[in-house]
C-alpha cells in the first residue's frame, strides 16, 4: 500500500499502536490468569458461594458459575472483558475527534483536502480496528485457555461471543466517538457514554436479580449475554440489537460533524 492511501486511518492506527499492544497483552494475561483458577476452584466455587443470597448470586451471574461456561461468562464476558474494553473504547472514541479538536491538532487535518465525512469514517474505522484487535486478544486467550484448563466450551461459540463483545464495546465506543464529533467536547462524550454504560450494566444486574424484563430489554449487556452465546451460539436478534447502537450513532454523529463549526 502506498502511503497516500487512507492516510487518516493509517495515522490513527499508528498513533495508538503502542497502546494497543500493551492493552492486548494485559487483557490476554488477565483472561488466562482467571481461567487458570477454574480446574482447582471450579468445584470449590459452588460450595463457597452456597451461603450467598440468591438475588446477589443472580445479579453477579454467579448462579451458573458452577459450569465452565458459566464461570467464563461471569468473569470474562460479564465483568472483566466489557469493563476493561469499555474503558479503552469509550476513552479512545471520545479522543479521536473531540479530544484532538480540543487540543487543536484536528485543525490542520480539516484544512487539508479531505472531506469531513471522510475523516470521520477513516477515524471510526481505526477505532473499530483497535477495538476488534483487543477483543481478538481476549478471544485468543480464551481459546488458549480452553484446552489448557479443560473448559470444554465450543470454539465456534467462543468466536460468536467474541463478535457480541466486539459489537457491545464497539457500539459504546462509536457512541462516544459520534457524540464527541457532534459536540466537539471530549468530556461530554466521555461522561455521557460512560454514564450510559454504567446504567446499562446496572440494569442487567437488576434484571438478573429481580427478573425485570424492562431492564433487560434496555441493557445492551443483557442483549449480549441473555441469549447465552457460549452455550447456544449465534442469536440474530440480539446481534442486530447490538449492531444497531453503531448503526444509529455513527450516521447521526457525521451528520452533525459535517455541519458544525470547528471549535477554537
Amino acid at each position: 500500500m502506498r502511503a497516500e492511501t487512507l492516510p487518516t486511518l493509517r495515522r490513527a492506527l499508528r498513533d495508538h499502536r503502542r497502546g494497543l499492544w500493551i492493552w492486548a497483552a494485559a487483557l490476554a494475561a488477565i483472561t488466562v490468569f482467571y481461567m487458570s483458577f477454574w480446574p482447582t476452584m471450579g468445584a470449590a466455587m459452588l460450595d463457597a458461594l452456597e451461603g450467598m443470597p440468591e438475588g446477589l448470586m443472580a445479579a453477579m451471574g454467579y448462579d451458573r458459575i458452577g459450569s465452565a461456561a458459566g464461570y467464563l461468562e461471569a468473569v470474562v464476558y460479564g465483568l472483566l472483558g466489557p469493563v476493561l474494553l469499555l474503558v479503552y473504547g469509550i476513552g479512545l472514541g471520545a479522543r479521536l475527534v473531540a479530544g484532538q479538536e480540543e487540543d487543536g491538532s484536528l485543525e490542520l487535518d480539516l484544512a487539508a483536502p479531505i472531506a469531513r465525512g471522510r475523516l470521520y469514517l477513516e477515524r471510526l474505522a481505526a477505532l473499530w480496528l483497535l477495538v476488534v484487535g483487543l477483543v481478538a486478544a481476549v478471544t485468543l486467550a480464551v481459546l488458549v485457555s480452553n484446552p489448557l484448563f479443560d473448559l470444554g466450551v465450543l470454539v465456534p461459540n467462543v468466536l460468536i461471543t467474541g463478535l457480541g463483545l466486539a459489537l457491545l464495546v464497539g457500539g459504546f465506543a462509536t457512541l462516544a466517538f459520534a457524540l464527541g464529533a457532534a459536540t466537539g467536547r471530549r468530556t461530554v462524550a466521555l461522561g455521557v457514554v460512560a454514564g450510559l454504560a454504567v446504567v446499562g450494566y446496572v440494569f442487567r444486574g437488576v434484571a438478573n436479580a429481580a427478573d425485570v424484563e424492562v431492564f433487560a430489554a434496555l441493557s445492551p449487556f443483557s442483549w449480549f449475554l441473555v441469549p447465552d452465546p457460549l452455550a447456544n451460539g449465534f442469536d440474530l436478534i440480539s446481534t442486530l440489537k447490538l449492531a444497531a447502537i453503531t448503526a444509529v450513532a455513527a450516521p447521526l454523529g457525521v451528520w452533525r460533524f459535517r455541519r458544525r463549526d470547528l471549535m477554537t
Partner: peptide, 10 residues
C-alpha cells in the same frame, strides 16, 4: 509533515 503531505496525495 509526511502525514499532511499524504493528505494531499503526496
Amino acid at each position: 509533515l509526511e502525514h499532511l503531505a499524504a493528505l494531499r496525495g503526496g
